[in-house]
Structure formats: C-alpha cells, structure tokens
Design a protein around this nucleic acid. Structure first.
Lengths: 352, 352
DNA sequence: CGTGCGACTGGGAGCGCTCCCAATTTTCGG
DNA sequence: CCGAAAATTGGGAGCGCTCCCAGTCGCACG
C-alpha cells in the first residue's frame, strides 16, 4: 500500500502539473539523460540530430533546469552578492549607491550572473550577512564598505568565497582585491583647475574623515594647494555628504573667510547645499566664488543651478572592473591580490 | 591511477579545506545524519543531549548547510524576488523605489527570506526575468510594474510561483494579488484640505496617465472639485514625475491661470520643481499659492523649501502587506486573490 | 509482568542534475 | 580493408540534504 501511495505521489510523469525534469526531456527526445544534458549545456560530442531533438523536447515540455540540483553538483550558483554597508539614512539619498546597484545588476547580467543585494548596516546584520555569504547562496561578493571602522571587511577575509572591494575598505590592505577611484588625483585635477583660473583662496568642504575616499580627496586638495604655493590654513570644513551638511559647512567657511574665491566640495550632494548657501549669501557663481565638486552624478544634475564643474567618476566603470576581477577568482584561478585605481576626469561646467 | 586521482580530489574528509557536510557533523557528534539534521532544524524528537552535541560539533567544524542540497529536497530556496519594472532613468531618481528596495529587504529578512532584486526595463529583460523566476531561484515574487502597457504582469500570470503586485498592475484585475494605496482617497484628502482652507482655483500637476496611481490621483482631484462645486476646467497639466517636468507643468499652469491659488501636485519630486517655478514667478507660498503633494517622501525633505504638505504613504507598510500576502501562498495555501487598498493620510506642513 | 504507546534514533531512498567511464559507432590513414 | 583514433552515447555514481520508515528503547498502565 505504501508503495502504491508513493507511486501515486511521485507517479508516472504523465501530464502532471509537476515540472518536467531532465529525465523527462530525455525520454521525450528518445535519448539518454546524459545526452540531453550535453545538448542543453552545448557540450562537445553531441550529434546535431540529438541536439535538435533535445532542444525541441525541452521547448515542448516547457523545461527549465532545476538550479538547486545543478548547483549541488557544479558547486556554482550563478549568483553574486553586492554588499552595501552604510547607515540606512545615508543610502536613501545617496545617488552614488543607486548607480552602483544598477551598474552591478547590468554588469553581472552581462556575465550571466544574478545580483543578490545585501544591505548590511548594523552589527546584527553583520553575522546575518556572513552567514548568508557563507551558506553557499552566492559564488562571490562585491563589497562596498567605505567606513574605516566597518568590521565587515575583516569579517569577510575568512570567507570561503572570493570578494572584491569597491573603494578602499577598512584598515586591511593586504590580501584583498580592491577597485578604487583616484580620489586624490581627482581632487588635484579640481584644485589645479581652480588655481589655473586664477583663484587663490580655495576652501574645501570635506567629507567624513572616517572614510578613505573623502580622506584622499582632502589630501589631494591640501597637497595641490601647497604645490601651488598656497596656504591651506583653516580653509577646510568637514561635513557628512548630505545636502544640508554641505550648506552648513559652506556657511562656516564663509563666516571664517568672507573673501574666499573658490571652494572644492567633496561630493555633488554637498555641493548643492553649498551652492544654496552661497546664493543666499549673495555670492555670484562663478564670478565671486567658483565651485568644483566630486562625483559628477547625473541624477543630481536637475537640482544644480548653475551646472556644476565636477570630478567625473563612473560607478559603472568601477563595477565593471570589479566584476572582471571577480570572474577569474570564481574559477579558482589564483589571481594575486591587487588594487586597481581607476582614473577620473574633470568635467568643466558653468560653476567654475 | 584514475581512481587514486579521484580519491585524492574527493578524498577522505580528514582535515581537508573542504567544507564540512552534515555527515561530518554527525560523525563528529557521534550521532546519525538524521539526528544531526533534526537537531540543526530543531525538529521534534531529539534528546537534549544529542542536540547539544550536534550544535557543538557544528560550531567547532564551522558548519553551514549547503543551500543547494537543502532546496533540492525541500523545493524551497528561501529567496524572494523583488521585481522593479521601470525605465532606467526614472529609477535613478525615484526615491519611492529606493524606499521600496530597503523595505523589501527588511520585511523579507524579517520572515527569513533573502531578497533578490530584479530590474526589468526593456523587452529583452522580460524573457530573462521570466526565465529567472521560472528557474527555481526564488520561491515567489513581489512585483512593481506600474505601467499600464507593461507586458510583465501578464507574462507573470502563467508563472509557477506565487506573485504579489505592488500597485495596480497592467490591465489584469482578476486572479492576482495586489496591494495598492488609496490614491484617489489621498487626492481627495489633499483637495478637501485646500477647499477647507478657502482655496477656490485649485490646479493640479498630474503624473503620467499611463500608470494607474497617477490616474487615480487625478480622478480624486477632479471628483473632489466637482463635489465642492468647483470647476476643474483645464486646471490640469500632465507631467512625468520628474523635477524638471514638475517645474515645466507649473509654468504652463501659471501661464493659463495666473490667478490660481492652490495646486495639487501628484508627487513630491514634481512638487519640488513646481515650488521652484512658483518662487521664481514671485508667488509666495502658501500665501499666494498653496501647494499639496503626494508621497511624503522623507528623502526629499531637505530639498523642500518650504516644508511640503503631502499625502503620506509608507512604502514599508505596502511591502509589509505584500509579504504577508505572499507567505501563505508560499505554503501553497490557496488564498483567494485579493486586492488590498492601504489608507493614506495627509501631513500638513507650511506649504498650505 | 505483559502490552502499548510515546520518545528517540539510524538507515535508506531519493531530490535533479553533472560528471566519469566504458561501450558503441563512425571516420580515416596506411 | 583493417586497426586506431575520434565521435558519440548511455549508465552509474554521486553532490549534501531531508524525508519516510522501521526499529529500539523506557515507562506508565491494566
């Protein structure tokens, strides 16, 4: 009886609403499971006739392979995690992260991988994230964790899956793959542009100094000023990458240095705020004060008045490089850890 | 020799760098595979002693279950797709979608599911999306596809996994699960508020009329005006949910009706644009023109001057309802298709 | 002091797929 | 025209897990 019951449940696969298996396709096509598999994965050594029959059978039966079974034996899931580690509030209005998500989706789709997004803000998230990445859901991970203090990068080092970092991650420098932008070089471009335009009192609104990108941008500003024989003095104001933060920082700078004639702002979002402050204070842009920013984010373009001169960095390019680094790692090709620094360019517009 | 090679590769599981399997844990704990499995999944009928031993073994060995193997037999992946179907450009600066993503991540994490994001703009994406959803990568899907003409919803109807739509989707109304906001009611709230404040020439900047949400909002505006004995006439201007679109629409309205004393804008983003136009044209807000918007999106708050009266809808609440609808579907509990309409509220601020 | 029924446990049978390998057929060069 | 090599094919053995199904206990009950 038990046997009957079982037979009834598993049943002969005749017109069931069950999903067809590779076996079904093979039978339908009149070949063996192996041949069907080879045809579907277009392996070598399948006759054209067999391939045809199998493909037709698969189509007729509405077959789609069971991913679980496949990855059980191949030890590949075809999915890559994109890990975003950033305070919740920040993420919501950070157009850079949005761009990263989209770029990740596209770039991974291009190499036949599915993106699995992971947000990992809090400390509880950390263990959950690690557990997930560990659990064999994904073959590798692209990690964006800009905070110096973020414990994530260190936690990921002992992971059994390959990881590529986007932007300099936490203290660790050895044994990891990193694709970063040339933040210092970008700042240099920006400041050199201002110097060349005859500006002499060039202030800066810096980003949070617990992240490497803003640190490098600030360093670039400082070095370039010194190289030009100008004094950075206290022409710097640290802020938090938000619009209102940029506005406040600009006020502070203006209060200390009413005579400044240029400002290098470490992000577009802050620049929008700075622009507002400058306008409110009656400064004409770029006549009185020239403004150069960092990011050159298209999403923010409509909010800009005047259009902003900005250091252009393309998140898509970064993600592309990250994916290219990850691919060989997935095949266990032991690529030695490398840091890639992507160049940035200056896009000059009306604000400078 | 071949045998040796294999033995070397698959090897006896002694101190390999291979991942430990359930079998390994069981042996280490001195119990059977079955007992180990029961302990790890805290099934019934496991003695406390056995459970302890297994848990300790799992910890010591750094065991994490192989998801592929598990879902091969359980026919569950523990992943849910969140499908966003929208033109690329729109998505980048749509804070509502960003909120949906985050909410989806949280809500799904709360029920022990992993979110897999799917962007599905173009027509090629469609077949890729369907193939993915079909491929057994996910157990179900939450779909946001607001465009009337979007072929996605129809394509998803024949899917073998449960789907819940966020917002009214394409022409189909029967046999699907939908969680929507009360767009018409929200518009009514907004307009009634304006009427109560004594406004009489209440224009509207409508959203794209190929989507159901903006259609309903426009309908709400129109009906409420008529109910109040006011004439909608040509006080409506259709736009595209973008900032600049809102600004242009406002200009058009102002040109036609210099005497309008209020405007209901169908989204926060457009309202920001409208606000700019009004200010530029020298209208004081709310003294000359009162502005009420829809979305009440926090991310846009800093850009608002003055703070905007807006119809409040909480994406998180919507996603929560969607997840709650999806859960029973996953267990094959045949819930009859239902449409849930979530209420919205009016948040009054300085702009009205 | 049986009997029975709970509480546990371990083995076996797969889930659907991809490999490996041996068997079979075909294709060629000498 | 024959043997070797190449081109095909099918069967079998798992991948690591969760079930189902017999078992083996212990203990309260009659």
């Amino acid at each position: 009886m038990a046997t009957d019951e079982k037979a009834a449940r598993v049943g002969p696969r005749t017109g069931d609403d069950e999903r067809p298996t590779l076996e079904d396709v093979a039978v339908f096509a009149g070949v063996s499971r192996s041949t069907a598999s080879r045809a579907l994965n277009d392996d070598a050594y399948v006759s054209a006739a067999a391939r045809e029959k199998v493909l037709a059978a698969a189509r007729d039966l509405g077959y789609s392979p069971n991913q679980a079974a496949r990855s059980l034996v191949t030890r590949r899931t075809g999915a890559i995690a994109v890990v975003l580690s950033e305070p919740e509030a920040r993420l919501l209005d950070d157009p850079y992260r949005t761009a990263v998500m989209r770029a990740g989706y596209r770039e991974l789709a291009d190499v036949g991988c599915q993106m699995v997004l992971i947000f990992s803000d809090s400390r509880e998230d950390l263990s959950r994230t690690v557990r997930f990445l560990e659990g064999g859901h994904v073959d590798g991970a692209l990690v964006f964790a800009p905070h110096r203090a973020d414990p994530l990068p260190k936690a990921l080092r002992l992971l059994r899956i390959p990881v590529v970092f986007g932007g300099q991650a936490a203290g660790i420098r050895r044994g990891v793959h990193v694709v970063d932008f040339d933040n210092e070089g970008g700042a240099r471009l920006a400041v050199e542009h201002l110097v060349a335009a005859g500006r002499r009192r060039i202030a800066t609104v810096a980003g949070p100094q617990d992240q490497s990108a803003p640190i490098d941008r600030l360093a670039g500003w400082r070095k370039t000023l010194l190289d030009a024989g100008l004094d950075p003095a206290d022409l710097v104001e640290e802020s938090d990458f938000t619009l209102s933060g940029g506005a406040n920082a600009m006020s502070a700078l203006l209060a200390r240095h009413p005579d400044l004639d240029a400002v290098f702002v470490a992000s577009d979002m802050m620049a929008v705020g700075a622009l507002r402050t400058l306008e409110t204070a009656g400064h004409r842009i770029p006549d009185d004060v020239a403004v150069v920013s960092f990011d050159d984010n298209v999403a923010l373009a409509p909010v800009m008045d005047p259009p902003l001169t900005s250091v252009h960095q393309d998140p898509r390019e970064q993600v592309h490089a990250m994916v290219q680094t990850l691919i060989p790692l997935l095949d266990n090709r032991p690529l030695d850890p490398r840091r890639r620094i992507l160049p940035v360019t200056l896009t000059v517009r009306a604000s400078s």
